[in-house]
Measured scan of single mutants.
Amino acid sequence: MGFKLLSKLLVYLTASIMAIASPLAFSVDSSGEYPTVSEIPVGEVRLYQIADGVWSHIATQSFDGAVYPSNGLIVRDGDELLLIDTAWGAKNTAALLAEIEKQIGLPVTRAVSTHFHDDRVGGVDVLRAAGVATYASPSTRRLAEVEGNEIPTHSLEGLSSSGDAVRFGPVELFYPGAAHSTDNLIVYVPSASVLYGGCAIYELSRTSAGNVADADLAEWPTSIERIQQHYPEAQFVIPGHGLPGGLDLLKHTTNVVKAHTNRSVVE
Rank of each mutant, 00 (worst) to 15 (best):
M1N: 04
L10E: 09
L10N: 10
V11E: 04
L13D: 04
T14H: 07
T14D: 10
I20Y: 15
A21F: 10
F26T: 05
F26I: 06
S27W: 09
V28L: 08
D29R: 08
S30H: 15
S30T: 09
S31E: 09
E33T: 11
Y34P: 13
Y34L: 09
P35Y: 11
V37S: 09
E39D: 09
I40E: 14
P41S: 08
P41N: 07
V45T: 12
V45Y: 00
L47T: 10
I50Q: 08
A51E: 12
D52P: 07
D52M: 09
G53Y: 06
V54T: 11
H57I: 02
I58N: 07
A59F: 02
A59K: 04
F63R: 14
G65C: 02
Y68P: 01
N71V: 04
L73S: 02
R76K: 07
R76S: 09
R76F: 15
D77W: 10
D77E: 09
L82A: 12
D85Q: 00
T86K: 02
T86E: 01
W88R: 00
G89D: 05
A90K: 08
K91C: 09
N92R: 12
N92G: 14
A95C: 11
L97S: 03
L97F: 05
L97A: 01
E99D: 13
E99H: 15
I100F: 03
I100E: 01
E101C: 12
E101K: 11
E101W: 13
K102E: 09
P107R: 15
V108Q: 01
V112D: 04
T114W: 02
T114G: 01
H115I: 00
G123M: 03
G123S: 02
V124F: 04
V126T: 14
A129T: 06
A130G: 11
A133W: 14
A133T: 14
A136D: 02
S137D: 04
S137T: 07
S137Q: 09
R141K: 14
R142Q: 12
A144I: 14
V146A: 12
V146G: 10
E150K: 05
T153I: 15
H154L: 06
G158P: 14
L159E: 02
S160N: 13
S161G: 14
S161H: 11
S162A: 10
S162R: 13
G163H: 09
G163N: 07
D164F: 09
A165I: 06
F168L: 09
F168S: 02
G169R: 04
P170S: 08
V171S: 04
G177M: 00
A179W: 03
S181G: 01
S181Q: 00
I186W: 01
Y188S: 05
V189H: 14
S191E: 08
V194L: 09
G197Q: 01
C199G: 02
T207G: 11
N211G: 08
V212M: 11
A213Y: 14
D214T: 14
A215M: 05
A215H: 04
L217P: 06
A218T: 12
E219S: 15
E219T: 13
W220N: 00
P221V: 14
T222L: 14
S223R: 03
S223E: 02
I224L: 14
I224Y: 00
R226M: 07
Q229S: 13
H230Y: 07
Y231S: 02
G240S: 02
H241W: 00
G246I: 03
L249S: 03
K251A: 08
H252R: 04
H252Q: 06
T253K: 00
N255Q: 15
V257Q: 03
V257F: 06
A259F: 13
A259T: 11
H260P: 12
H260W: 10
N262Q: 05
S264Q: 07
V265N: 14
V266R: 13
E267Y: 05
E267G: 14
